[in-house]
Amino acid sequence: MQRDYFDRVHFWGRISSVTALAVMLGIPLSISLHFGIWPQAAGVLNGLLKIIPMFWSIAVIEVLTYAPLLGAGGTYLSFVTGNISNLKLPCAINAMQNAKVSPSSEEGEVISTIAVASSSITTTLIIAVGVLAFSPLLPVITAEDSAIAPAFKQVVPALFGALGAGYFSKHFKISLVPIAAGVLILLVFPALPVGTLIPVTVIISLLGAHLSYKHTQKKEKKRQNQA
């Protein structure tokens, strides 16, 4: 990686994260100023105490899990616009796979950033246009009894089925163990949130791949010695 580009991405990424933090905190601040209402601190703290232990621990796990997959630029952007596991990450994975670049390469960093940025712009525009232009119609389209509702309920299996097919066909040997492990874990803990399951299956997959890699290396060494 060219050092200067890498450093620049972190420089701009840090500025953008801090700016995004200010923008985010500015939202409730503006609402409070606009309405002239400052909610009771005790009530807000009460609400926060219930979610912060879970949300903030997940944040640490997510940063550690997703950063190596998204690259620096992709990570800074993804954590601002959100919907990472169900949108930004599959998008970046698909883009790197199509461009035939590795996430650990300079090209992977660039392709991942382009994919995440395009995805973020599209999502922001679709939500904004949807809210501004179609808000009277949206409840009808997305209603429980709407004709297209069953399709949107299955967006995640559709997305990960298509994405998985590409990956599993290329890495079949190392794919079976993490899927089997995930299914087994869910058989015991069916309601486990997918966000909690991801780090577990990622670690199992990495361990399986490491063992498989070591085994292949040993075999190759043996073959070389025999030759």
């Binding site: 089925g161 794919s175 899927i179 492990a181 874990i185 991801i198 299956t201 990622v202």
Partner: peptide
Amino acid sequence: DTKWADLMSAAAFIGLIAAFIARALAGA
């Protein structure tokens, strides 16, 4: 080790995808 690095990235992706596939197969 670039060979391991590539496999490691693929394995991390597969781990992530596996979680969602497992949920579609067996999650409540």
